[in-house]
Design a protein around this nucleic acid. Structure first.
Lengths: 165, 165
DNA sequence: CACAATTCAATTGGGCACAACTAAATGGCG
DNA sequence: CGCCATTTAGTTGTGCCCAATTGAATTGTG
């Protein structure tokens, strides 16, 4: 295999951690992509990608929003949203208009077509939940767990970056 | 808000599902990117991205492998792996050589530098586990959950695609 | 042996994520 | 008022993910 120095108990513990780490990061990476894959299949009928669907969910729920607010809901910046929104506009689902009050801001508004798409999207969640094979309680518990994880990771990243150690 | 027909009990249930769905997909998407962010910070010292780190983990554990096998371990295809491996080769961490036995196959082998990098990578898992704020048992449980989810989602995607319904 | 089907890696093209930068508008402060 | 820091979108560049295609090598079958 690979070259390793003769092991002490301490070093073995480190190796074990490496194993466990590899499992959790593989698992999360794989789960994320598996989810993405199922959404891809189900959303193909609607002509949406997964991230585009997330944007539409926010707009269906919140109505017209500036790009900034949209980014806060989704934790995405303009580098991701600008081209994505341009594609949604080309598809005729949203319009983008400079705010009159603040010329820096761009309001994203659903078109009639965009609003209408919601009806066809209503069946998506049922199909997704079915695909997971989990019941609602299990999904809720997992969601809670993931949110905890995200909060902890965000906090850690914030700490790691400035001090870099 | 958005235009919706007057609600029946059935329709309200559908709306509730839409909500729940939005929560689970947001959560997973966010967790995946949060993890990515922490790895990005921690791996910067090693000059690796998160997917490159996953590739190195497999090579450290399995030794020399053809691209095909690497892809099976990581569930990635050549479209993703070919350019990624080219970058690892440019970085001097791996070599790619056509197999003598089967000229179609390309063997990916760690260089001495690639092997040596493992020592510096040993501290990564500890820092990641710390960043999650979870203990080992919790991480194990979550990993198991995510693997269940991935298996179910893969099965569902396989079913959805052929019949497309 | 010859030919068709399969396997494997690479490439192309579309889309997402993020860092770094630009440019315009706004707001605060001397 | 005039200037500067901040805010907001957009652009550019790098890397990843996947679908579809290409091309070479191999395998199976008549």
């Amino acid at each position: 295999m690979t070259v390793t120095p003769p092991s002490t108990a301490q070093e073995n513990a480190t190796e074990d951690w490496l194993h466990l780490d590899s499992q959790i990061c593989f698992s999360l990476h794989a789960a994320s992509r598996a989810f993405n894959g199922v959404y891809r299949v189900i959303l193909k009928d609607l002509g949406l990608t997964y991230p585009q669907y997330l944007v539409m969910l926010v707009l269906w729920e919140q109505g017209t929003l500036p790009v900034k607010k949209l980014g806060e809901h989704l934790r995405l910046d303009s580098g991701t949203l600008s081209p994505l929104l341009k594609r949604l506009e080309t598809a005729g689902l949203v319009r983008r208009e400079r705010s009159a009050r603040d010329e820096r801001s761009v309001e994203v508004r659903l078109t009639e077509e965009g609003v209408a798409l919601r009806d066809r999207a209503l069946e998506v969640p049922r199909r997704i939940v079915t695909a997971t094979g989990f019941d609602l309680a299990e999904i809720g518990a997992l969601r809670e767990r993931l949110d905890q994880l995200t909060a902890a990771l965000d906090a850690a990243a914030a700490q790691e970056l400035p001090g870099n150690r």
